[in-house]
Simulated assay, not measured.
Amino acid sequence: MTITLRPGTTVMFTGDSITDSQRLESEDGLGFGYPLRVAGEWNFRHPDRPVTWLNTGIAGHKASDLEARWQADVLDAHPDVVSILVGVNDMGWHTIAPDGHVILAEDFAAGYDRLLAPLAEAGTELILIEPFLLPISGTVVAGHAHIDDGVRKEWRADLDPKIQVVRELARTYGAHLLAADGMFAELAAASGPEHWAADGVHPTPAGHAALAEAWLRLVA
């Protein structure tokens, strides 16, 4: 079943930099990524069903960072639908991080669950977007660090259990799952991963368009 967006529905996007997409620099606060594309396409298709679109993504945030601001940034807005994309910063960035901190899958699961529980209790519709990592070959630049294939394989081994956490939580809470990791794997196999995310993490305009199209298939 799809989520029905009725006139007056409030939709909240939240997460990390992929959702943030420079929202504070944008006129409507939605940024320049998939939330803006979703809102624009919905408003084009359904001028008779106005929806309030909100974005509280913040670049660099982990699930624990979302939890720290959850009440003020999400719950207090009383959204009807909440769309969450988080997890890539909970991945094995510790291989280059100065603090060497490792976020275990079980800790990620517990924190994510604490995000979802109050929303489910309030009857909020949930869309969970899998974190994803595209298989970029060779050395690329992520922030200020040069990442080789070996490190990226370590990241993949660390991220896969966290993707599974998101899938399991979606089942537990009856949430709609946007299987972004699998989607991008299929797209990358057909046309090359750089077309969708030049650094394997942050979507290109085409990658944001793919996320938006997949998101819109979950709503009616």
Rank of each mutant, 00 (worst) to 15 (best):
D148W: 00
A142P: 00
E213K: 09
V201M: 13
V201I: 15
L119H: 02
L169K: 11
V88S: 13
Q22Y: 13
H78N: 12
I136G: 05
P35I: 03
V201E: 01
G111I: 10
E121Q: 14
D80A: 15
T56V: 07
V166P: 11
A179K: 04
G192V: 03
S191N: 14
G15H: 09
G182D: 14
D199L: 01
A210F: 00
K162T: 03
A170T: 12
F13K: 11
S137L: 11
A97F: 02
A189L: 09
L178T: 03
I3D: 03
A39M: 02
Q71I: 04
S83N: 05
K153D: 15
I96G: 12
I127C: 08
G33K: 04
D181K: 09
S21V: 02
H61P: 00
I96S: 13
M12Q: 14
I163S: 06
F108C: 11
W70H: 11
F184W: 13
R114F: 02
I84S: 06
V81N: 08
H202P: 01
W196K: 06
I58V: 14
D90W: 10
L177Y: 09
R156F: 06
A117Q: 15
A190D: 11
T9M: 09
L159R: 10
E25K: 07
V81G: 05
A170H: 07
L216T: 06
